[in-house]
Amino acid sequence: MSVLTNHLDLFLYTFGQTLQLFAISAVLSLVLGTILAALRVSPVPVFRGIGATYVTVLRNTPLTLVFVFFVFAYPLLEIVKIEPYTAAVVSLSLYTAAFVCEVVRSGINTVPVGQAEASRALGLTFTQMLGNVVLPQALRSVVPPMTSTMIALLKNTTVASGFAVVQAGSIRDSLSEAGENVLFGLLWVAIGFVILVMPLTYVQQVFEKRWSVAR
C-alpha cells in the first residue's frame, strides 16, 4: 500500500496521461476505421483495394514496430516534425483503425442486403445509404467487439513506455529509480487498468440495451 500512497502523484499523473492517450486515439481510430470500412464496402474497386491494403499492412504489423516507425524512422524523412507523444497517438490510432475497420465491416455485413437495395432504389447516394440506413443498424451488432477493440487500445497505450512517452506503463521505471518494490507497484498498475476498463464494459451494456429495443 505504501508504494501507492508514497507515489500517489506519480500514479494519478501517469494514469491521466494514459487516459488522454486512449481518449484521443479512440476518437481518431473510430473515425478513421469507419471511413476505412466505408471504403471496403464501396462500389469502387480502387477504394476497396485501398481499404484492404491498409488493413492488411497495419493489422499484420506488431504495434511496437508501428511505434518504431513513427518515433525513429519517420523523423528521418523530415516532413513534419512530431513529438514522441504525437507519434504515440498517431501509431495507436492508425494501428487500432485497422481493427475498428474490420469490426465495423462485420457489422455492415449483418445488415440484410435488402436494406441497401431499398435505399438505392429510393435514390439515396452511397454515403446517404451508409449514414442513414446501414451504419445505424450495424451499430447494434458492433458494440461487443468494438468494446473489446477499445479495451485492447487502452492497454496498448503502455507500449508507449518504450518510446519516452510517460503514462501508466512507465510507472515501473520511476519506481525502480526511487528504489521501491517494483512488483507491488506493478500490481497497483494492474489494478488501475482493471478499474479503467470497467466503465467501458458498463458503456457496452448500456448501448447493447438501448439498441436492442429500437427496431
Binding site: P112, G114, Q115, E117, A118, S119, A121, L122, G123, V133, P136, Q137, A214, R215
Partner: peptide
C-alpha cells in the same frame, strides 16, 4: 423517379 416495391418489403428496420 422510379419507385420500387420489393417482395420482402425492405422497410428500414430501425
Amino acid at each position: 423517379d422510379v419507385g420500387m416495391v420489393f417482395q420482402s418489403f425492405n422497410l428500414f428496420a430501425h
